[in-house]
Simulated assay, not measured.
Amino acid sequence: MGPLGAGGFMVILVGGAPGLLMGIAVGFGARSWLARQRVGQSARLAKARVEEDLAPVGDLLAACLAAGAGPREAAEAVGRSLDGPVAVRLRHVAAELRLGGEPATVWGRLADLPGAETLARCMERAGISGVPAVEAVSRIAAELRAERGRAAAQRARRAGVLVTLPLSACFLPAFLTLGVAPVLIGLAGGLLGRN
């Protein structure tokens, strides 16, 4: 409806054949702009969902590793117990490892998710060399949780700034109209009245 409304507004505003041509151009432009905005928003939402899931996934992987499970078993258990893009990727990783996939290649698929690179490298090292990864995975999960907290605090600060902008847009004109203008009018009247 937005592109149609923008195009119709241009037709009414300009009128005639030029208005029709401009309306069509504005309508198509608005439609493509909205499509780009939707694609960008869906990508941001998918990234936010992945970032939201990573810290709990790291905690669960660390718990499974501490209980004695190997990296494949831990990925399989965590993938089955959760939903979301990270859990789906873990289920795929576990299935490929079970079928004999190369750990460096398979864990690289988890690393393709934004923010999961360090977790995937740690699990890959544990799968290849057998090095215990409990402490490293716990540390990575804590870092992911702390980063998520910092991002939330930054969004809250930004929201506070954005909330004050409309208030300043309302209060500044009111202050000028009710506070400064009467003083200036009184001063101008006093100066003009003396002449």
Rank of each mutant, 00 (worst) to 15 (best):
66 A>G: 06
66 A>V: 00
68 G>W: 11
69 A>R: 14
69 A>S: 10
69 A>T: 13
70 G>V: 08
71 P>V: 12
71 P>N: 11
71 P>F: 06
71 P>L: 07
72 R>N: 14
74 A>N: 04
74 A>Q: 02
75 A>D: 03
75 A>E: 01
76 E>F: 04
76 E>V: 11
76 E>A: 09
76 E>T: 09
77 A>P: 00
77 A>R: 05
77 A>G: 01
78 V>F: 04
78 V>G: 02
78 V>L: 00
79 G>I: 10
80 R>I: 07
81 S>Q: 13
81 S>Y: 10
81 S>I: 04
82 L>E: 10
82 L>S: 11
83 D>S: 10
83 D>C: 06
83 D>L: 06
84 G>Y: 06
85 P>Y: 09
85 P>V: 12
85 P>G: 11
86 V>W: 02
86 V>K: 09
86 V>F: 02
86 V>S: 04
86 V>H: 04
86 V>P: 01
86 V>M: 08
86 V>C: 05
87 A>P: 04
87 A>M: 15
88 V>Y: 08
88 V>N: 15
90 L>P: 00
90 L>Y: 05
90 L>D: 00
92 H>S: 14
92 H>V: 10
93 V>Q: 00
93 V>P: 00
93 V>Y: 01
93 V>W: 02
93 V>N: 00
94 A>I: 11
94 A>T: 09
95 A>S: 14
95 A>P: 07
95 A>L: 10
95 A>K: 13
95 A>W: 11
95 A>C: 12
95 A>G: 11
96 E>D: 13
97 L>P: 01
98 R>S: 10
98 R>V: 05
99 L>S: 11
99 L>E: 15
100 G>Y: 03
100 G>K: 07
101 G>P: 01
103 P>H: 04
103 P>D: 08
103 P>I: 01
104 A>T: 08
104 A>M: 10
104 A>E: 15
105 T>L: 14
106 V>A: 05
107 W>H: 11
108 G>R: 03
108 G>H: 00
109 R>T: 14
110 L>A: 03
110 L>P: 02
110 L>V: 08
110 L>I: 12
111 A>Y: 01
111 A>G: 04
111 A>N: 02
112 D>K: 12
112 D>Y: 07
113 L>W: 03
113 L>V: 05
114 P>M: 13
115 G>N: 11
115 G>S: 13
115 G>H: 14
116 A>E: 09
116 A>I: 06
116 A>P: 07
117 E>Y: 05
117 E>A: 13
117 E>D: 05
118 T>I: 09
118 T>E: 15
118 T>Q: 13
118 T>L: 11
118 T>R: 15
119 L>W: 15
119 L>M: 14
119 L>V: 11
119 L>T: 13
120 A>T: 06
121 R>M: 05
121 R>W: 05
121 R>F: 08
122 C>D: 14
122 C>F: 05
123 M>L: 13
123 M>S: 08
123 M>N: 12
124 E>S: 14
124 E>V: 07
